[in-house]
């Protein structure tokens, strides 16, 4: 068995001229031990009638439909609608369902934690890689990395600095380790200079990383 890598660093430097943050699509054509296993297990489960090919395809499409834009819609609504925000903080699943999100696909309880001038929240799963997939899609590589999972609980301010985020000492840093059936989404603070923007314009300001809590939103330049 050869252990292949999907760690980003294992791919070496990106070709010149390419955005280092651009998606990687390499070694898609290598039939590794693990890829053979995926094909074999999937085909056997389909042959046995445990799964259908259509179910697998639709589930992949469902995952593809979940992107950070979903979380951003929820955040923007919370910024403009105090009643929605109150529901979001009390029962995030119900609040998201009221916006049309299908929350039943995943058997977990969404919990929203709010950043304030006094408290900055940041989320990790030290024991595996639990992530609010229903609103953000698949977790990024760094969230699943050994380094993030190991270090965030021990020295969160240093980890945040690696993301370019400096939290003032007057602000408490609150780490959330999602060890059970809760999934955490951070409600970032509405950025300065965003008065008068429409809800879709506000949603466009909200980044994936701000909803995990590793960044804060920059003031709007106008």
């Amino acid at each position: 068995m050869h252990i292949g890598h999907d760690h980003p660093h294992a791919h070496g430097e990106p070709p010149a001229g390419l955005d280092p943050h651009a998606p990687q699509r390499d070694h898609d054509d290598t039939l590794t031990y693990f890829r053979k296993l995926e094909i074999a297990v999937r085909e056997l489960l389909i042959e046995k009638g445990v799964l259908t090919a259509d179910e697998v395809r639709r589930t992949v499409e469902n995952y593809d439909s979940r992107t950070p834009e979903g979380g951003a819609r929820v955040v923007a609504r919370a910024w403009v609608d105090p009643a929605f925000k109150a529901l979001l903080m009390r029962d995030a699943t119900a609040a998201c369902e009221s916006l049309g999100f299908d929350m039943n696909v995943f058997d977990v309880t969404l919990t929203v934690v709010e950043n304030t001038p006094d408290t900055h929240n940041v989320v990790v799963c030290t024991l595996c890689s639990c992530y609010p997939r229903m609103l953000l899609g698949m977790p990024p590589a760094w969230y699943k990395s050994r380094a993030y999972r190991s270090r965030l609980v021990r020295d969160p301010r240093a980890v945040l600095r690696e993301f370019g985020t400096v939290i003032d000492d007057a602000v408490a840093v609150r780490v959330h380790d999602s060890t059970a059936d809760l999934r955490y989404l951070v409600l970032p603070m509405r950025p300065a200079g965003s008065d008068g923007l429409s809800e879709p314009e506000l949603a466009a300001l909200v980044t994936r990383d701000s909803m995990v809590g590793v960044t804060v939103l920059s003031p709007v330049q106008r």
Partner: peptide, 8 residues
């Protein structure tokens, strides 16, 4: 260090 490269 945290590996920052994105991976689709």
């Amino acid at each position: 260090a945290i590996p920052m490269q994105e991976h689709e």
